[in-house]
Design a binder for these strands. Sequence first.
DNA 1: ACCTGAACACCGTTCAAGT
DNA 2: ACCTGAACACCGTTCAAGT
Lengths: 215, 215
Amino acid sequence: MTDAAAHRRREPLSRARVLQAALHLVDTEGPEALSMRRLASALEVATMTIYHHVPGRAELLDGLSEVMVQEIGMRFGEAPDAALRRLAHGIRAVALAHPAAFRLVGMRPLRTTDALAPVDAGLGALRAMGFDDETVVQGYRVLVSFARGFALGEISSFTLEGDAPAAAPPAVDPVRFPHIAELGPVLAEPDRDAAFALGVDLVVGGLVARARTLR
Amino acid sequence: MTDAAAHRRREPLSRARVLQAALHLVDTEGPEALSMRRLASALEVATMTIYHHVPGRAELLDGLSEVMVQEIGMRFGEAPDAALRRLAHGIRAVALAHPAAFRLVGMRPLRTTDALAPVDAGLGALRAMGFDDETVVQGYRVLVSFARGFALGEISSFTLEGDAPAAAPPAVDPVRFPHIAELGPVLAEPDRDAAFALGVDLVVGGLVARARTLR
DNA sequence: ACCTGAACACCGTTCAAGT
DNA sequence: ACCTGAACACCGTTCAAGT
């Protein structure tokens, strides 16, 4: 049932409906639209009613990342390196599907157990490659740091800010910064898909190569 | 001259002194302390006085990243791969020196020309390795995305949030998430330096290997 | 059980005015 | 040139109360 339908029937509010409405609000009106007051008014409910389903704004944001992480599809019986590549691409896909929301929560630690399935899958893939525990955790952090960092960076370059309009790159002195000046056109319109694929190849490809030296 | 000394003599306010005070405020009182009002009161000046030196809050944040980026040391005549490694470690070092401020601005695009020296150096190193323009820009984005993403992630795991106290990882169902459960101790206290070094090795090492195939 | 209104202690920014 | 006070339109959250 859609949120709108649930609402028309005046079903009792729930954490799930609050989170759903929050994500919709951010998707349609931008990150700065997510205030407890505006969320309540979108749900046609008093501001304080929200607090009966979510303890406060911090947990609302945690819930938002939970909902988004659950959109990362899982799959079973995949080769470990394919699973890692899918995890990275899944993180970026969620970010591109919800850029404003990802900007809001993209670097928060996952604090809610319902958001841990992709984490477990990623760690499992690295263990299946034969790494010791330390290297599993390190490799996981490297891959996820890259994927989140890349996605946040590209989002910032094309979403409006919540406080300032999308940035035009500053004009640059070709004497001080010759490389920036000469690369200008490519810097302005990079092939973002190719850049992300390069990063995934470097990280996952490198890990696969190291795994081979273990056996 | 220190900010405090300048202030005692009632020197006129300047953009530089505003930014310096803003960074100090965030360093000492956390990210949520950076409001125009609290910054003004730290400078013992009326709130609106700030606006004569900085157009608004967005530009204040841009200025903060400018100041932080300038702390990344530059060096000349270095081998390209060493320059890339130093850039990555420099980004992380700045983040660890100013965790609260980095959380505030770590993913903003650099919008101020005085912040572009490390960008130009990084691009120059990749060009010196022989890559075509597209690959230079892609490789740069990959390295910087990883460094920023990693630093932001580790900061979030040990800084208080501005809205919630430092996160204790949630207890986890070992049936649903066996890998998380079994890796628990390592996940709780990862070797962050080693993890970052692994990422730098994978990215820079991988780029060096690709550069070799070009000649 | 579920929801609400009023109040408190904050925000960023505009504007017209002061020295 | 440089600084300011008052006002406007917002915030998140506490508390006591309503159904």
